[in-house]
Design a protein around this nucleic acid. Structure first.
Lengths: 125, 125, 125, 125
DNA sequence: GTGGTCTAGACCACG
DNA sequence: GTGGTCTAGACCACT
């Protein structure tokens, strides 16, 4: 389920973090579910375990997962935190973006019209 | 008019590119106007001329400016291209962002309400 | 009575040691009382017997319990040692902590006020 | 100024983080001051640059420092944040510690007496 | 077996 | 020169 895009200029570990957060958010990983082990995922993706480890550390730091030494890494059991944080993140992007659009002369009406036309079919971020 | 933010994680040359494009878009730099010389701007901003040179090269590559050997760099004389490209760029960010927001359960009405509240005072991108 | 917190970053055996010491201190386990067997506790907590064994060994090493071959582990019959040692431990933490707080400008009055407000309801250590 | 204690069971990078935060807090490092480079400090402490890098990343994540690629790492220019966070950290330790002491029968008066006796001369944390 | 830390050495983008 | 990422391989504590 996790695919690394070498064309993507972001670091690999960051791609992994985002992908796993996304999988947790859409319910592919259930609350409390165990993630693949560092070594296993490193093997699957042909990456160094350190790279996976870094991604997992970041996920834990963000509260997306928690890890237990000797047992493994698990999706947090407080999933409402995940979606709340995600929502804030998106608004943090949304508001300055809209401001930029207004500044260069795109009207609020034009934006609202655009929104009403959007269907959730295509590519999201 | 150009202020470098050291806290900004983006490279300095990229900040300069964006700032100059912005200044061109809002009409601070007129079509055909000459930019400050590499040396002068480097001096003003206390930066290495290499950094400015890189920004200017990038601006030329993007078509925002053109350079004349021995004379300097000038804002393009086809400014409508600038705003058209910028507008496209912003919509390319806007649409997938809105899709993401809809996917995680933010309603279109909530977005529209948010837009109507936005004033162009604060930080844009 | 013993609950393992997987979110707690400390090793499980250490959590068990601390919990049993606490239970002995507050009198839940009486002096000389037998602890549950390794197997039984491992079963109750769904843990590996090795983990329990390690906790019991540590408790014996600390003098909190003593073990009799073939019979089991028992709370020490010199309980006054327990509370004395615990008290010393806590003061060893308390005094440098207070010093740190004073150093960064928290006043003694502020600390005393804080103490008078504390109820023993919430989370202790 | 930074000394690694190999007896300390905490990871090296964490010792470095704490030491630098402390040095920033007591004013040894001024606001905006540049830290030694990753490689230089690694050399001075006879450690691998990765270990220092990890410490520096953590410091930046905590807001104690900010880093500029190609330039170096610098103490944050908003130092009031540092002491505010430090104060919170200390109270987070203080309150459960006091609760533990009350639980095992140490009285509030005894604690208050102890506090009034404390001078900031000795070892803090 | 698990996660976590560390070393050694490499490459990159940036200034 | 700087910080940042990545690989390779090692050791440790814990389960």
């Amino acid at each position: 389920m996790i695919i690394i895009d070498n064309m993507d200029k972001r670091p690999i570990y960051e791609q992994i973090v985002e992908k796993i957060e996304h999988l947790a958010l859409i319910g592919y990983y259930k609350s409390g579910e165990q993630l693949p082990s560092v070594k296993q995922l490193a093997c699957e993706l042909s990456l160094n375990p350190n790279t996976i480890q870094r991604a997992y550390s970041e996920l834990e730091r963000r509260g997306t997962t928690y890890s237990v030494k000797g047992k493994g890494s698990f999706i947090t059991t407080e999933p409402e935190k995940l979606s709340k944080r995600r929502k804030e993140q998106l608004f943090e992007q949304f508001i300055p973006l809209v401001k930029s659009m207004l500044v260069i002369g795109i009207s609020k009406n034009e934006l609202i019209t655009e929104i009403t036309k959007i269907e959730t079919g295509g590519k999201a971020i």
